[in-house]
Computed example of a mutant assay.
Amino acid sequence: MYNLIKSEIFKNKTNYGFLLMITFPVIISLFVTILSLVNINSIIPTNLNPWVFILGRYILNIYSLLYPIIIAIFVHSVFDIERKNNNFKLLLTMPISRINIFVVKIIYLILVLYISIFTSYLFFYISGYTLHFIEADFCFTKFNSNYIIILYFSKLLASLTIIILIQFLLSLIFKSFVFPVSFCSFITLLSIMFHKNEWVEIIPYNFPHMCLCDFISGSRNISIFNLVNLMYIMIVVITCNMLIKRISV
């Protein structure tokens, strides 16, 4: 299995989806940092926490909207490489079970997600301290928000893991790029638009937005990432297991 993971990393090192996952948080952080410096005259009052009301309001808002869509593109791009080169047919002739082949893909997808979220976390701090270094009026060092920042990114990682598994399932079923990415985009936008409705709380594509709301409000609630997440993981894993044995790739 270790060799399969190495092979997966090698195959996807120049994949546009992989590059998008890694560069996305860097680009967004740099964009918001520059935008904040350009609009420094309209800075919020210094008695408000800039980690929440500057970086949280912009960077994390973008994450809640675009991260699920970026993930949908990334997951499908991994399948697309295999299908274009007929690698699945070659893999399935090897003395390796189908389950192992697709488990390796899931491990790779989650590994890249971990790297992307860690990059997001790192550049979130870099943006804050850069703004404070250039203009002390931002007052980032005045507030200690380490706990809610770590909690936010931990919850974001948990919520995006569920989305990766769902997109894995959709990309396994649909060979076309259109449906998995369109479905993700539509459900993400729909859940954000109706985020005040209670029924939206069980939609996994709304979880990143719920993480943002908890971050802005300072909530330390993690209840949504217990039973609901576990339920989705079980459903997706069981469905994937059934499909992998039957589906024609």
Rank of each mutant, 00 (worst) to 15 (best):
S154T: 15
P45V: 05
Y129E: 11
Y67L: 08
I222A: 11
S77N: 03
L92E: 10
F183W: 08
T141Y: 09
I9T: 11
S7F: 07
L65Y: 03
M21E: 11
M231W: 04
V112G: 02
P25N: 06
L243G: 10
I149L: 09
F174W: 03
L122Q: 11
I106G: 05
F153W: 01
P50H: 07
A72Q: 02
A158P: 15
V104R: 13
F10P: 15
L66H: 04
T141I: 09
V26H: 02
V78Q: 01
Y205C: 02
L212S: 04
V103N: 15
N41M: 13
L243E: 02
K155M: 12
M242R: 14
T130Q: 12
K105H: 04
I235D: 03
T46D: 15
L230M: 02
I187F: 00
I27C: 02
F18A: 11
P180A: 03
F53N: 06
W199D: 12
N226V: 13
L172H: 01
I99H: 11
I163N: 03
S219Q: 07
I99K: 12
L122R: 10
F174Y: 04
K84A: 00
I163C: 08
D214C: 12
L19C: 07
N146E: 15
S7T: 05
M193V: 02
S185H: 02
E198R: 06
I216W: 04
Y58D: 08
N47F: 10
S182C: 14
S159I: 09
M231A: 14
I173S: 05
L122T: 14
S97N: 04
V181K: 04
L91R: 10
V104H: 10
L169G: 01
L113Y: 01
I192G: 06
E198K: 08
Y125T: 07
L190N: 13
F207T: 14
T188A: 06
N3Y: 01
Y2L: 13
K13W: 09
G56M: 09
L169N: 07
I5T: 13
F88A: 13
N47A: 06
C213I: 11
S223H: 09
F53T: 02
T33M: 15
N241H: 07
I22P: 08
N226A: 10
L131N: 10
V200H: 05
V178L: 08
S159R: 12
I117A: 06
I99Y: 12
I148W: 04
F225Q: 05
A158C: 14
C240Q: 04
L122V: 14
S145I: 00
T14Q: 14
V32D: 08
T188M: 04
P25A: 06
V75E: 01
F140D: 11
V52K: 15
I216F: 06
F194Y: 09
S171I: 03
G17E: 04
N39H: 12
I59W: 00
W199V: 12
S127I: 06
L169H: 03
L20M: 15
S116F: 00
W199R: 10
N241V: 08
K155Q: 15
I28T: 09
S145F: 06
R246A: 13
E82Q: 05
I107W: 12
S223K: 12
A72P: 01
L169V: 01
L19S: 05
K6G: 06
L157Y: 08
F215W: 07
M231L: 12
I173K: 02
L65F: 07
S191E: 03
F140C: 14
L227C: 12
